[in-house]
């Protein structure tokens, strides 16, 4: 359904993505894991054109885009088929929860106010926030804000939702409620591309795990393969940090 081909991206001569190829099928939940600074978020942002890749192609089943020759119209078309959930939620601060979900439906999809309201109500219900319709972002907890932003993405009925470390800015008590919502969405058949550091969650909900290091995909496969029988030494090494419990570092005297 979605294929990325040979994606390259550099920031000031520093190459972040060194040729990424990735295929995602309809209904897939693909999770990208890997050390920080390795280009996971950059890759996700390239899919949505929030970053402009230097080279490469993105292809949907009926629509192709070469990053070296993009028109403004193509960018909008790409963005209207994808939706992004940000680490920092990025809700519109001057709008209430339901207005946040309605806004793009009215402005971008040209829906009537009534239709947008009903759709928004449905999606906010789905993320468990039917009682917070008229709350402003400043009146919501981080977890609630993130759930509103998930509802905002869902309401656009995109072909794929991109999650960029959706729980990294949350305190541990609030992580669970957001993961539950994502889990439930994943099971309802929505195609997802997710970047996260929540390893056990990734193992649980993903249909495919992609391990990235230093701008390249090192290994990809079903969770059972990556987490239990990984073929690459680097993958094993990275995951070993999550399997062991915390041990206090003591210096011998």
């Amino acid at each position: 359904m979605l294929a990325l081909k040979n994606i390259h991206k550099s920031f000031n001569d520093h190459e972040i993505l060194k040729g990424i190829d990735l295929k995602i099928n309809k209904g897939d939940v693909v999770t990208i894991i890997g050390p920080s600074g390795t280009g996971k978020t950059t890759l996700l942002r390239c899919v949505n054109y929030l970053e402009k890749p230097d080279e490469g192609e993105i292809a949907f089943s009926d629509f192709q885009l070469n990053y070296q020759s993009v028109k403004r119209k193509d960018i909008l078309r790409l963005r209207r088929r994808t939706a992004m959930v940000f680490q920092q939620y990025n809700l519109f601060k001057n709008k209430t929860a339901i207005e946040n979900v309605m806004e793009a439906q009215i402005v971008v999809q040209k829906k009537s106010k009534k239709a947008a309201y009903e759709k928004s109500l449905e999606e906010l219900n789905r993320v468990g926030l039917a009682d917070k319709l008229d709350a402003y972002p400043s009146q919501l907890s981080g977890g609630q804000q993130q759930r509103v932003s998930i509802a905002r993405a869902l309401a656009m009925e995109p072909e794929i939702i991109l999650f960029d470390e959706p729980t990294s800015a949350l305190d541990p008590e609030l992580v669970g409620e957001v993961l539950n919502v994502i889990d439930q969405i994943a099971r309802s058949g929505v195609t997802i591309l997710l970047v996260t550091h929540e390893m056990s969650f990734a193992q649980n909900i993903s249909t495919k795990i992609v391990f990235m290091d230093q701008g390249k995909i090192v290994e990809e496969g079903p969770p059972s393969q990556i987490f239990n029988h990984s073929r690459e030494k680097r993958t094993k090494e990275f995951l070993s940090h999550f399997n062991s419990n915390y041990t206090k570092i003591t210096t011998a005297k």
Partner: peptide, 25 residues
């Protein structure tokens, strides 16, 4: 910047982003 990116990611045109999200704030 995050709100402007959010508007971009939802497919707003630059003009829609300015008039609907940025100017009111």
């Amino acid at each position: 910047e995050g709100q402007k990116e959010a508007a971009d990611s939802l497919g707003f045109t630059s003009f829609q982003k300015l008039t609907r999200i940025v100017f009111p704030q």
